[in-house]
């Protein structure tokens, strides 16, 4: 499972404050802790409060790269901001993200081709969030086909069927699971599938971690290959490790949690 750590996001007050005050140690600590807990990629999002998006994003990328070696997922609606930061990236980056809208895809895949980046493609378009697996599949096909036109291999795509809050759209969870299964069968090599896990429990109270980890395990059983989550949630990571074991991705031993963390 590819773990994309979500904690460097200006939506969080401490991160937002650290960005505006240029508190490198706060950001670097978050980067190191997430990687130590098992993140393979770190999502970088300056959040809604930035007054100087370009400089803030570039500062984040440089600050993070001073302490960890993992690839970054550059998370912004502004492609110019992503491109400026890509120039500073020492590893291959993930562009987070494109929708299935033609204009957006053209721009994102052009950029991805130019910088050899991976792309998160969200199964959604200007008509809104799809509410059926068929609509999701239709949008996913559009993304894969468009990417292929730019010479981007399906395994460099992360298709996101959009996990929705369980207290808002309960019936969508099963649709998402089925979509994950269908996305994986779209082509060979299979595209990666990804979800933003914390969406699932957004707005719920009392059992957020339990909701997230149960959803994750079910999504993994449906073929999920990547996930955006809080890697510092140890119970969540334990559930992920156990699910990988049960899916026969790793060889069992009595200390399997520890074995995974020594990988």
């Amino acid at each position: 499972m590819i773990i994309i750590g979500e904690l460097i996001n200006g939506m969080y007050k401490d991160v937002s404050k650290a960005i505006s005050n240029r508190e490198a140690d706060v950001i670097q600590h978050l980067a190191e802790e997430q990687v130590k807990a098992g993140a393979n990629i770190l999502d970088v999002n300056i959040g809604p409060y930035s007054n100087n998006v370009n400089d803030d994003m570039k500062w984040l990328v440089e600050t993070i790269q001073k302490v960890v070696m993992v690839p970054l997922s550059l998370d912004s609606t502004r492609l110019d901001v992503i491109e400026e930061s890509m120039k500073l990236a020492t590893n291959r980056v993930v562009i987070n993200s494109t929708s299935a809208d033609e204009d957006k895809m053209s721009m994102v895949f052009e950029l991805a081709k130019k910088y050899n980046a991976q792309v998160i493609g969200i199964a959604l378009d200007s008509s809104g969030v799809p509410l059926s697996r068929d609509k999701r599949l239709e949008l996913a096909v559009k993304i894969v086909a468009k990417a292929a036109g730019y010479g981007i291999s399906a395994d460099d795509l992360y298709l996101d069927p959009i996990a929705m809050p369980i207290n808002v759209a309960q019936a969508q969870a099963r649709e998402v699971m089925e979509s994950i299964r269908e996305f994986r069968m779209l082509c060979n090599p299979s595209p990666n599938t990804v979800i933003g896990l914390s969406n699932v429990s957004q707005g719920t109270k009392g059992h957020r971690s339990l909701l997230d980890r149960t959803f994750l395990v079910m999504a993994m059983a449906s073929g999920l290959t990547a996930v955006i989550l809080d890697p510092l949630d140890k119970e969540l990571m334990d559930a992920m490790i156990t699910a990988e074991l049960i899916l026969n991705k790793n060889i069992y031993c009595d200390s399997f949690l520890e074995a995974y963390r020594k990988k």
């Binding site: 060889i251 069992y252 031993c253 200390s255 520890e258 074995a259 020594k262």
Partner: peptide, 14 residues
């Protein structure tokens, strides 16, 4: 037993 092989390696490295 591959499971025990892995476990012994972990125990020793611990």
């Amino acid at each position: 037993d591959i499971n025990i092989a892995k476990q012994v390696n972990i125990l020793i490295s611990d």
